[in-house]
């Protein structure tokens, strides 16, 4: 469907196009079954940042207050890119792993499902 507008052919600016982020793109991040962090997060990243920075540095830092984070075995993590399961290439960049502007990276940590396994 398209907008009901007084003037035919109405369009408006795409306010969040990637050019507006000064060379970076947005990456959304969600840790499944961990609702202590009430919602998925949003960070700007350089598209050519090595993907391996995420498990080694960025994710542990974003979720450092969750007691499960210290126990994560990154080799066993299950990754989802835009809702579909995938295996990241740790030698590739974020963009090289198929993450575009405003993509969602989700990860699940089998065996670690929040406080007392309650998805918190």
């Amino acid at each position: 469907m398209s907008v009901v507008a007084k003037e035919p052919g109405y369009t408006s600016e795409v306010r969040d196009r990637v050019e507006n982020f000064h060379g970076q793109q947005l990456l959304y991040i969600g840790w499944d079954n961990h609702l202590m962090y009430s919602n998925p997060l949003c960070i700007p990243v350089a598209p050519d940042m090595p993907f391996s920075m995420l498990p080694t540095k960025i994710l542990p830092d974003l979720y450092d207050l969750h007691p499960d984070m210290a126990k994560v075995d990154w080799k066993k993590v299950e990754w989802l890119r835009d809702g579909k399961s995938f295996t990241p290439d740790m030698n590739e960049s974020v963009a090289g792993n198929g993450f575009g502007h405003k993509s969602v990276l989700r990860f699940a940590t089998p065996g670690l499902n929040g406080l007392d396994g309650r998805c918190i």
């Binding site: 499944d32 609702l35 919602n39 998925p40 949003c42 960070i43 969602v104 998805c119």
Partner: peptide
């Protein structure tokens, strides 16, 4: 939480709502 949230494009609330049939899973729609 020191990191900014993913917001819903329409209601603009941080996406903290869960799946209608599972209160432990964030509801992602794209």
């Amino acid at each position: 939480n020191k990191t900014l949230p993913l917001l819903c494009q329409v209601c603009q609330i941080p996406m903290g709502f869960t799946e209608p049939d599972d209160p432990t899973k964030i509801c992602y729609r794209e």
